[in-house]
Simulated assay, not measured.
Amino acid sequence: MQLEDQLRGEIRKLHYSIRTEEAYVLWYRQFVRFHGLIHPETMGAAEVEAFLTHLVKRGVSASTQNQALNALVFLYRQVLKRELENIQAQRAKTSRHLPVVLAVEEIKVLLAVMDGVEALQAGLLYGCGLRVMELLRLRIKDVDLAGGKIEVRDGKGGKDRVVCLPGSAMAALQRQMERAKRVYEQDEMANLSPVWLPDAYATKNPSAGKSWPWFWLFPADKLATDPRSGTLRRHHSHEQRLGRALSLAAKRAGLAKKVTAHTMRHSFATHLLLRGVDIRSVQELLGHADVRTTEIYTQLARAMRGDIRSPLDDL
């Protein structure tokens, strides 16, 4: 078996996401090419250091360099059964950029020029503070209209959390569930393959992929081939579609800021702080492991609230 296949096998054994798999395989390939196609078995910490230093000279960010390091540590530890010790590579500088946040009026204008499924998705990103993949991976069972809540499963870091549903989104959510039910019934009549399930649950209850509760809240319009199994099935709506809709809406609304799905989440957090919600509550709603990650929004909230007055205004 080729080393790349072994790498993929170990990643899947540990139930890492397809995105992590593709990223780790990409770093493995770049590492080998950088060293003239030498087999990693004959290399070690010194070659990894040289590669990571090369990435710094290319101008990559600290997070990119860290991802490359994680990929290579995984390769050596899990596949080659060796530890990489005392790596002393030149480190990329960590930068901390302030997130783009829309004012409340800008959110209103943006949502007003959107329609269809993307309007609901944008509203939930802002109204619940969801990450884009948390939103798109929602299943029917995760949405509790009667209880007014969404259960976010396996968020960043593998954590679950509960967020409140905006009352203004209830009617649109009900219509979306009805639309999803029609797609589900069409797929059932066509005897399509079940939707993707988390690996552990797929082993425990493989028939759940054919059930309504596990169907996507936002099913894709077209079928697609699963990159791992090769199975033709219904996936959830793609993030690029929502990204394009937000970008187009920002232009229509005349906004000068770059608007992405994460802009809606940043705005959610900042606006809650502006309303006086305590930072620990915001941390829980966002699913941040460390409150220091959430604290960046306090700086934005203070600036937007006008807590610090410019001396120019006293002249």
Rank of each mutant, 00 (worst) to 15 (best):
Q2V: 07
Q2W: 06
Q2F: 04
L3Q: 05
L3C: 05
L3S: 03
L3W: 01
L3H: 05
E4P: 00
E4I: 06
E4C: 02
E4F: 00
D5G: 05
D5L: 10
D5W: 02
Q6D: 00
Q6A: 05
Q6V: 03
L7R: 01
L7C: 04
L7Y: 00
R8Q: 07
R8A: 02
R8L: 01
R8Y: 01
R8H: 05
G9C: 03
G9Q: 13
E10Y: 10
E10K: 10
E10I: 05
E10D: 07
I11E: 00
I11Y: 00
I11G: 00
R12S: 06
R12F: 01
R12E: 03
K13A: 08
K13S: 12
K13G: 02
K13D: 04
K13I: 04
L14F: 05
L14H: 12
H15M: 09
H15D: 13
H15Q: 13
Y16Q: 04
Y16L: 06
Y16G: 06
S17I: 07
S17M: 08
I18Y: 10
I18N: 06
R19K: 05
R19C: 05
R19L: 02
T20N: 08
T20A: 06
T20D: 03
T20P: 05
T20C: 05
E21H: 08
E21V: 14
E21K: 12
E22N: 13
E22D: 03
E22P: 08
E22G: 12
E22W: 11
Y24W: 14
Y24G: 03
Y24N: 12
Y24K: 10
Y24H: 13
V25Y: 03
V25C: 08
L26M: 12
L26N: 15
L26S: 15
L26R: 15
W27D: 10
Y28E: 09
Y28F: 15
Y28I: 13
Y28H: 12
R29A: 06
R29P: 11
R29F: 07
R29H: 14
R29G: 04
Q30F: 11
Q30E: 15
Q30C: 12
Q30P: 12
Q30G: 11
F31S: 12
F31K: 12
F31Y: 15
F31L: 13
